[in-house]
């Protein structure tokens, strides 16, 4: 069983955002593996532990991304490939999907796992774009995965409920919280990860040009949202406070 898992390195969810020259600054920010991608890595490793095979973690990123990939190797992935190129630095979801698809076109795989969404761009695009470029079926936002013969049965979140799908393999799956409990790397895992293969490839290595990955969506500017004003804290006897609140909701906020 060969599994490829796509991971993105993102800011820690606690990170405070600052803007510099219309762009989000990464100064002093703690970087992590996108939380949903951890579910993807965990599921991949569990499947390998059960069925044998190999887990390859892949990412489009920069020098710092090696750390995120090493973390996944320490969790138990077997090897890693980093796609790194100056032409990808201002890339969008299209750019990442094109680069990943080209890398995967020359690899063997039975399953591809992603996270359901990156917590930085909140796009939820790369898994479906990748599936399309590879002409594979997709199942997004899955909370359970069961491997069958040439197919998998998954549960995915839909609006207001869940759906159970049977998916022909190979296919692309994107992981949602609930899929599994993510392990922490063990000390031996961390030691072993240092010796595992982490290959860095450029666009040229993949046979792609800068034009092939030129972004379709370009950031014009980022800004901080207008701060939410702290409102009024109502004080007094419960009955009075509640009466005041209901009046405010009706007359001032006009929401009930």
């Amino acid at each position: 069983m060969k599994i490829v898992t796509c991971i993105k390195q993102t800011f820690d969810t606690e990170a405070k955002i600052t803007i510099e020259n219309g762009k989000v600054s990464d100064q002093g920010v703690n970087l992590i593996v996108n939380p949903y991608d951890e579910f993807a890595v965990e599921e991949s490793i569990r499947l390998k532990e059960k069925n044998g095979g190999e887990v390859v973690v892949v990412s489009v990123g920069n020098d710092k991304t090696q750390e995120a990939l090493r973390y996944c190797l320490a969790m138990g992935a077997d090897r890693a490939v980093l796609i790194q190129d100056p032409a990808l630095e201002n890339g969008d979801n299209h750019s990442a999907a094109v680069a990943l698809a080209k890398l995967l076109a020359d690899m063997e795989y039975d399953l591809i796992f992603c996270g359901k969404e990156a917590v930085d761009d909140g796009a939820a695009q790369v898994p479906s774009r990748l599936a399309e470029k590879l002409d594979l079926p997709q199942a997004n936002v899955i909370t359970s995965f069961e491997l069958g013969d040439g197919q998998a049965t998954v549960t995915r979140e839909i609006d207001g409920g869940t759906e159970t799908l049977e998916v022909q393999l190979p296919a692309v799956f994107s992981a949602q919280k609930g899929l599994n409990e993510v392990r922490y790397p063990s000390l031996p895992g961390i030691m072993k990860a240092k010796r595992k293969e982490l290959k860095v490839v450029s666009l040229a290595d993949l046979g792609l040009s800068a034009e092939d990955v030129a972004p379709k969506a370009e950031l014009v500017q980022a800004e901080l949202p207008p701060p939410r004003k702290a409102g009024r804290v109502l004080k007094g006897e419960v009955e009075e406070v509640v009466a005041e609140l209901v009046k405010l909701l009706q007359e001032e906020a006009k929401v009930i």
Partner: peptide
């Protein structure tokens, strides 16, 4: 068109242009 989308879970607001 200019497209406005919250990023970093709403901690920043980004404006994009699309060139396709």
């Amino acid at each position: 068109y200019a497209f406005v989308h919250p990023i970093y879970a709403g901690k920043a607001i980004a404006t994009y242009k699309v060139n396709s």
